[in-house]
Nucleic acid binder design. Structure first.
Lengths: 222, 222, 222, 222
DNA sequence: AATGAATGAGTGTTCATTCAT
DNA sequence: TATGAATGAACACTCATTCAT
């Protein structure tokens, strides 16, 4: 992370660089991105980059960290205020898919971390999973779900979300059609994934967690 | 795929190159690998590489294809002869984990395809999922599982396998300890994942597919 | 020139190679052409090339030689049977332009020799010029043209033909339009250069050679 | 043309590179020249080259452009102050031959453009020809030469100069002897071409332009 | 704080040529 | 006569990083 800026001006420069890096990585991926293009995008000299970051990898790590916060925030905000546990779970996943749909390139950045900075990806997944584990444990205490091991279940849920997201959000509805299902993915009520897929996915998850009824009812009614 | 060798000697050279590329990619990842190191490893001149492959990407794609065949073979062979559906599913996953444990670096090659050759990864996942879909559809016809949408369920299963595999096989038992659980991952009877995790995972999947009983019984007894 | 073919089969192979080389050089120029593409085009193995030619440069030289014969043949045949000296000169130039128009790429091969095999180009120009010199000397003896030094005049004529040919045949009628003036360049009666340009050029040459009247009359009437 | 230097230091480096490229191309021709040899000659790192030029072709084009200016300057300066039109024409050609004699390798660079960057050569010839056309048109208005089409005549003149220059300056006096005629080609009073050849050439041109008298008198007396 | 010039190792790829068969 | 496998030097070009100003 190199030297932190010591002045307001420096702070601003650092932010410009970070933002430029985000766009650059999103657009070209890590290896294809170049520091010089980042500084160009940021409108600063090449040397300036190394005033605020130790290396190309350094910005990347910081970016992954940042993205992690944003995904988790989106998910928890998405789930906030849901009346039932089912509704909350569904809303959480929908928020995740929406985030992915809105920032597909950014999400790519996170996944690429597996090959660029494995530790960063591990941290990313672990943090999200910890949230799941807390939720599942609570739900078990409330008797809302079965007594499955919350850790294993949490990682499984993570996998389900990732794969469904990759398949229907990143790849799009058709096997090789355009991403998304045509519905505006930013409309907060809708999901970035076809309704039917989300339904089936919740049924899958409901059964998995010992709540087969989740698949037979609609949201808010469970 | 470039020109196919026309002589036995050429055939042999091509195989040497492919094998060298596999090790090289596994060891350093795609971008950090160099064609010259591949040829060096193969013990041939640099130019020889281009007699058999159009480009660095070309070998990579061929390798992903190859690995796809091997994973699927391992899974179907692992599942062969299982007495019950539960046993078959469990054996399939166990085989998958074992393959991953035996070739962790190779599996990395496949996943990296997302950033190197997205089409190749898509093909990889799609082929495996197609196998799942067939199995699930058959199981539904036999009344063995619920009426969940087989496509959605298949992708969800894929995700569960990938994430559990990443967490317990690639990362290892402890959050940040060494990979594997100490048990010999190649011993065919055992799983590369802790027994408990596999148990819980099967319980998760059983419930998801409308067979909550899968989680309460042991293999071979369902 | 390497080993001459010793059998009819060899003769045929050599011819195939020569023809393939002509097309290859015409299409890509000397440096961008590759021996392997020549052999591929010829439908023979790569090694076969070196049975008949010492090197890439070797074929090139042979080709330039060959082209030299063809251009000179075209010019002398074009001029044959012309009634007057003016008609003969004009027909000779027209034939040269026609040849260039019909084989623009081949003519490029000849010119490129300046940078690839300077000796070959020197020979090419010298041979053509020798023909001019003979003609001019004869014409002087016949009192048909002034007493200008035939050697200097011959090279000057060569230059005029080359430059007019480059400008109007290779580059085309408009400064940067398409080559040729739209008239079918292979129609033997017409010229590959606009009639007006040929007229003015003959006037230029006529004056230069001490026959200002050439510019005031039409062909066949002088 | 890439990024222009932003500092004096950069300006200097760029000039060093340009000069090195000039020598390199002159010595080995375009294809045989290598960027690394250019940078070596310039005494800078390989990467530095790409700070100032987009590509090898880019410097080449810039060089051709530069040479074009220099040739035209040499010609117009050579002709400046000539008392008569004949003297001016003769001086212009003599200056051209002198330039060629002084920089035979550089002139090679220009001609090679036909195969490396055809547009550049076209521009080169066109610019010079435009100067001729202006001069010829003016001379016609002044009644000094005949009414030949100035464009055709200009290209023809260009051809005469090029070919005579190639034959007597670049190839030398003897058919295949050394270049030059032994006279110091840089001595400004003399021509790089044997006096006799220049005489005959001017006679040729004079007649061509409708001034047969040019060939019968000496310079400065017409 | 900021710059931009400079670096040089490194990349993937091409190709004329040789040679064992 | 013919082959195609093999070579390795050579190429243009990129880039993260350093440093003097």
């Amino acid at each position: 992370m190199s030297a932190a800026p010591r002045t307001a001006r420096g702070e601003k420069t650092r932010r410009k660089l970070l933002e430029a890096a985000e766009h650059e990585f999103a657009a070209h991926g890590y290896t294809e991105s170049s520091v010089s293009r980042i500084t160009e995008r940021a409108g600063v000299g090449q040397g300036t980059f190394y005033l605020y970051f130790d290396s190309k990898l350094d910005v990347f790590n910081e970016l992954v960290e940042d993205l992690n916060h944003r995904v988790r925030l989106a998910m928890s905000e998405g789930a906030r205020g849901a009346g039932t546990r089912l509704a909350a779970e569904r809303a959480g996943f929908a928020a995740f898919f929406r985030f992915t749909a809105e920032h597909p390139a950014l999400y790519r950045v996170v996944r690429e971390a597996e090959f660029v900075s494995p530790e960063a990806l591990r941290m990313h997944y672990t943090r999200i999973v910890e949230g799941y584990i807390d939720g599942l444990t609570q739900a078990q205490e409330d008797g809302e779900i079965g007594d499955i091991d919350p850790t294993v279940a949490a990682w499984a849920l993570m996998g389900v979300g990732e794969m469904i997201g990759m398949r229907w959000v990143l790849w799009g509805d058709a096997a090789n059609g355009e991403p998304g299902d045509g519905a505006d993915p930013t409309a907060s009520g809708t999901s970035a994934v076809p309704e039917h897929v989300l339904d089936e996915m919740m049924r899958f998850i409901g059964g998995a967690l010992g709540r087969p009824d989740w698949g037979t009812t609609n949201e808010e009614e469970a």
